[in-house]
Simulated scan of single mutants.
Amino acid sequence: MTERSRARLIPGDDPGVPAAAADVLARGGLIVFPTDTVYGVAAAVDHPEAVARLYHVKGRPLDRPIPVLVSDLDQVPRLTGEVDPLVLDLLQRFWPGALTVAVPAAPWLPREIVRDTGRVGLRMPDHPLALAIIAAAGGALATTSANRSGEPETRTAAEADAALGDRVDLIIDGGPAPGGVPSTVLVVDGRRLTVTRRGALDPEEIVRAFPEFTLS
């Protein structure tokens, strides 16, 4: 599609939504869908050119990696390689939910996702429609908030359409995103957790549950 075209908009309660979204993604397209925090815009992780397009449609700085949303914990080893068992315990405790963890990236992930960090940010959203879409697309999607960089995050399909509707291929209207606040982002380095964005989850709650970790 050209940037002068409007994205196709479909209701999230249509049972064919996951398959339709997966088809667009498999062809290198971009989709917008609701999560538990805000609406997201996504590309398939194995389509580097589509991930690169995310930077263009958002006006996102190239030094900011694109996080990856997953449908289940089994995706973590595929995207990171060897995983610290305690980190897996942490994810099992706080996923699905508003927590993104940046961990060492698997070598096969495209540079468009990892950039120069050597890490990938992973999150499992607490939203049934989002999880169904991600699972249908292979279990992992490069996803960032569906807004132009520097502008407010979008909580409805109409807001996302106004922001990006002429720049993406499909918008899924799943009603208002229930959270409205982006996820908390932590970089995991051994037993140290570095907060790079304070969001919906209080980082102190994590260290209360897992005192083996320290916050910085």
Rank of each mutant, 00 (worst) to 15 (best):
M1L: 10
M1G: 12
M1V: 07
T2S: 15
T2P: 11
T2V: 08
R4I: 09
S5F: 10
S5N: 11
I10Q: 10
P11A: 11
G16Y: 03
V17K: 09
V17G: 10
D23H: 11
A26N: 07
R27T: 02
G28R: 07
V32G: 04
D36H: 04
D36G: 05
V38L: 15
G40K: 05
V41D: 01
V45D: 02
D46R: 07
H47C: 07
P48W: 06
A52S: 12
R53G: 08
P61N: 01
P65D: 00
P65H: 00
L69H: 14
D72E: 13
Q75L: 08
P77N: 07
R78L: 15
R78M: 08
L79M: 09
E82T: 15
V83G: 01
D84W: 00
P85E: 11
P85L: 11
V87N: 06
V87Y: 03
F94S: 07
G97P: 13
L99W: 13
T100N: 09
V101A: 09
P107T: 04
W108H: 12
L109I: 04
L109P: 00
E112D: 14
D116K: 03
D116P: 00
G118L: 05
R123S: 07
M124W: 02
P125G: 06
P128I: 07
A130F: 09
A130I: 08
L131N: 00
L131R: 14
I134L: 10
L141H: 02
T143K: 03
E151Q: 15
P152C: 11
T156Q: 03
A158H: 03
E159V: 04
A160I: 10
A160D: 04
L164V: 05
G165H: 07
R167P: 00
I171T: 08
G175F: 12
G179P: 05
G180V: 07
V181A: 10
P182A: 10
P182D: 05
P182E: 13
V188C: 06
L193Y: 04
L193C: 05
T194R: 15
V195R: 13
T196R: 13
R198S: 13
L201F: 10
E204Q: 15
E204K: 15
F210V: 14
P211S: 11
L215T: 11
